[in-house]
């Protein structure tokens, strides 16, 4: 009876916004895992990307050193660099030093969580906002009823995130680089025998993963929320890792998982706003429950990359 009050266009638009950071982070993690590296530190990288991206924009806007679009691009660049550096560090630890990946990831997470908060306290202090990526209004398109509201009222980073889905799928499935990634993740010995440097590919993917995690953080701090606060991501990086498993290491399915999770989240907010009488705790847990149930029934039996979490050692 109230279905059209619940499934409004704004709920779909809301789901798209919510999904953006998950898509960035989960796509990055997909690259890393496809090559055999489990990066559990995504959330820490997101936080560092969120803070540094925010800070770059904050400083340049406050001092007026850069025009607004340039300062935003600068923020994105910084977030990519910082995320990438953390990815590189993660690669060094897990590829070169062959540390246990699950646990070193938790270390990276704690490091990012603590450092981003520390820097925030020292350099910014109290929550302050920046003018982030504005929502883009497209001529004609944005005015289309329903569809316009759902698809054509977002900021640039939202479109970048969704554009990355086919790009990632293309890179992984249709390029030599993608073939190398899959080979290294599936059968590192064979890849090595064919002259592919296992270490170099894993360094590349983990760094890409870090960059995208940094961008995921920045999408929150300079595009969707436009401020930074301690633990801004509230654990989204862990959900992103879970979504990679959900999507069976395929970019399209990973993005679909992110959309499903975000859609249920948007829906539970909408249900509360229109005042349906269900306990708010059950609404909050709905996205998590539904994600699990979806996975039980989807039962795709996707094989995970065989060499996931396993450091590669050349036979001597």
């Amino acid at each position: 009876m109230e279905l059209d009050a619940i499934f409004t266009a704004s709920v779909f638009a809301s789901a798209i916004r919510l999904a953006t950071p998950y898509i960035f982070a989960a796509l990055g993690e997909t690259f890393a895992q496809r090559s055999g590296v489990l990066n559990l530190g995504v959330d820490g990288m997101m936080l560092m990307g969120a803070f540094t991206g925010f800070y770059a924009v904050f400083i340049t806007q406050q001092e007026g050193t850069l025009s607004e679009p340039l300062s935003l691009l600068f923020g994105v660049l910084i977030a990519l660099i910082v995320g990438g550096l953390m990815g590189l560090a993660m690669a060094f630890v897990s590829v070169t030093l062959k540390a246990k990946q699950g646990i070193s990831g938790i270390g990276v997470y704690l490091f990012g969580l603590g450092l981003s908060e520390l820097l925030f306290q020292q350099w910014v202090g109290t929550p302050k906002s920046v003018s982030g990526f504005p929502r883009i209004t497209f001529p004609y398109l944005s005015d289309i009823p329903v569809l316009g509201q759902i698809f054509f009222h977002h900021n640039l980073l939202v479109y970048v995130a969704f554009a990355l889905v086919p790009i990632s799928a293309f890179v992984l499935n249709r390029t030599t680089f993608g073939l190398m990634i899959r080979a290294v993740g599936q059968n590192p010995e064979a890849a090595d025998a064919m002259g592919v440097s296992v270490a170099r590919v894993r360094y590349a993917t983990t760094t890409i993963g870090g960059m995208l995690a940094g961008l995921a953080g920045a999408s929150l701090s300079i595009a969707l929320i436009n401020l930074f606060q301690q633990n801004l991501t509230a654990g989204q990086g862990f959900i992103a890792v879970a979504l990679v498993y959900f999507g069976g290491w395929r970019p399209w399915a990973v993005a679909a998982g992110a959309m499903l999770f975000s859609f249920v989240n948007a829906l539970q907010l909408q249900i509360k706003v229109i005042g349906l009488d269900i306990p708010s705790e059950f609404a909050v847990m709905a996205p998590y429950v539904i994600t699990i149930i979806a996975l039980v029934f989807a039962s795709k039996r996707q094989e995970q990359p065989t060499a996931l979490t396993k450091p590669y050692e050349r036979g001597e």
Binding site: S104, L110, G112
Partner: peptide, 8 residues
């Protein structure tokens, strides 16, 4: 942050 470093 330091805890994280120790772990790593």
């Amino acid at each position: 942050a330091v805890n994280g470093l120790i772990v790593v």
